[in-house]
């Protein structure tokens, strides 16, 4: 039964990572931008959850507020900075977004401080599901998994079935043609970027009650998400989902079975995948 708990934890962690990694891979796949600051959005989300929950008294009011703020932040960043990177070398994308990380981290330090915080689980979900006589599983973690699954399904539906999704896919394969069809590619880019930011911020917010809120959390998630994108194949949502779950399992079980090497395990997985599939599981070589 303890295994069941680890499995549930793996799935929950993997799905949470998918929310962050999907934005990263979409932004790269559609705009060709490598965004190092993407992990910062996750960090911002966690700190937003902490501050807004204190301010409003409940995570339930904090969540929608945070998403709106995140979307606005994404739009502003895209219009002011990111859109200037589309035609430039990856090197400059790396640097500008690296600079953004420093700005975000220091802003966080000025506004909220460098302390580690915790966020209370909302009362409604603060319960445990009994599995056996002495083992139980927190309902809030199940809630995270469920929400992430719903969002993943929504994402799939939007991209595969809606007009907006069609425009996004067309924009990814041929920006000039889309432009010629009269679709305003500028707005699609801004929208995709803002959606990616909102997803990462949302992930940080709902994760806050189960993982503490701490300064370096953004970078930790960013690098794991790079590993996910590399394993899944750049630009592939399906690959990102499968890789996220793989990472969730390897990391969770690594910590249980080989605690000394847990930090290294996910990178070993990446090395193995690269040996056999240099372009990732679903990447175009």
């Amino acid at each position: 039964m303890e295994w069941l708990i680890q499995i549930l934890n793996s799935v929950q962690y993997g799905l949470l990572l998918f929310l962050v990694a999907s934005g990263l891979t979409l932004i790269f796949g559609i705009m060709g931008v490598i965004n190092l600051a993407h992990g910062s959005f996750y960090m911002i989300g966690a700190y937003l959850a902490f501050s807004l929950a204190e301010l409003t008294g409940s995570l339930w009011t904090a969540l929608p507020l945070g998403i709106v703020l995140a979307f606005a932040l994404g739009l502003v960043l895209e219009i002011l900075l990111i859109s200037r990177l589309y035609r430039r070398d990856h090197l400059y994308q790396v640097l500008l977004t690296f600079g953004l990380i420093l700005v975000f981290e220091e802003m966080r330090s000025i506004l909220v401080g460098d302390d580690v915080h915790g966020v209370a689980i909302p009362a409604l979900l603060d319960a445990s599901l009994p599995l056996t006589e002495n083992l139980s599983y927190p309902v809030y973690r199940l809630f995270i998994s469920a929400v992430c699954l719903v969002l993943a399904a929504l994402m799939y539906f939007t991209i595969q079935k809606t007009r907006l999704g069609m425009m996004v896919r067309a924009g990814a394969s041929n920006a000039e043609m889309t432009q010629a069809l009269g679709i305003n590619i500028r707005w699609i880019h801004a929208l995709v970027f803002a959606a990616g930011v909102a997803l990462a911020v949302f992930a940080g917010m709902i994760a806050a009650p189960v993982s503490s809120v701490f300064p370096g959390m953004g970078n930790q998630v960013l690098i794991i998400c790079f590993v996910i994108v590399v394993i899944g194949g750049i630009g592939s949502l399906k690959g990102a989902l499968i890789a996220s779950l793989l990472i969730g399992f390897v990391d969770t079980f690594g910590k249980v079975l080989l605690p000394e090497l847990a930090g290294v395990a996910v990178y070993l997985l990446m090395a193995i995948v690269l040996l056999f599939r240099p372009a990732g599981l679903y990447g175009r070589p």
Partner: peptide, 20 residues
């Protein structure tokens, strides 16, 4: 861009090796 991400990830692996 792949190379950028992969070099970052492997460097991080070395980092965790000494860290953990």
């Amino acid at each position: 861009v792949y190379f950028i991400m992969v070099t970052l990830a492997f460097a991080q692996m070395v980092y965790y090796f000494f860290h953990d």
